[in-house]
């Protein structure tokens, strides 16, 4: 099977402040995965372990919100290299579970994790220039860059991801997505 473009669709995926559950959900499309690999090729994705963009992509699927400076850098790269950028899952759309820290000062968070934690041998707040800086709060992806579509769920149901990919590949907007597969949990 070929696509209308005469070539495979190039899809990039990443997990920012997420748990990779949305990636797992895409793998949960069962035997349809054989159809998927006929029409889609991954670039810059944990699925084929490509770490950097080597070409411009048609679709970018972003899981997780932005909790540190590296998340922002990667998200901006995705916006630059992907024609259609989709927020996948509650974390990318609302901040999700990591956003439970919003409202707590960063200093307190560090102290709780690295100083007051009972299982620590040495209390030391990590401060290496290699480490990305923690943001003041979690930012949903669309508050950092422009996002073209949203697929809610924790994780989004495999059927929803499959339907969405098919809509996009047919050149349609995600506004037409059926709500029957949409769940926020």
């Amino acid at each position: 099977m070929s696509t209308e473009m005469g070539r495979k669709w190039i899809v990039a995926t990443t997990s920012l402040a997420g748990c990779f559950g949305c990636h797992m959900s895409l793998l949960d499309i069962d035997e349809k995965i054989f159809e998927l690999v006929k029409i889609v090729e991954f670039n810059k994705s944990p699925f084929d372990d490509t770490k950097e963009f080597s070409m411009e992509c048609d679709i970018g699927l972003v899981e997780g919100g932005c909790c540190n400076s590296d998340n922002v850098r990667v998200l901006r790269l995705f916006r630059k290299h992907c024609k259609i950028l989709i927020s996948v899952g509650q974390c990318a759309i609302t901040g999700g579970l990591p956003a439970m820290r919003n409202g707590i000062p960063v200093k307190e968070l560090f102290q709780e994790s690295y100083c007051n934690n009972l299982t620590l041998a040495n209390s030391l707040i990590p401060n290496d220039e290699e480490l990305p800086l923690l943001l003041d709060r979690i930012y949903p992806c669309h508050e950092v860059v422009q996002v073209d579509g949203f697929l809610p769920g924790c994780p989004p149901r495999a059927d929803l991801l499959w339907e969405a990919l098919n809509l996009l590949i047919a050149g349609k907007s995600l506004g037409k997505i059926s709500m029957k597969n949409v769940k926020y949990d």
């Binding site: 901040g95 956003a99 669309h142 579509g149 709500m179 949409v182 926020y184």
Partner: peptide, 15 residues
């Protein structure tokens, strides 16, 4: 929200 087809709120989150 399901009934009204909400995928994402149009307003910024106040947290």
């Amino acid at each position: 929200a399901y009934q009204y087809g909400m995928l994402v709120p149009r307003f910024p989150f106040l947290f």
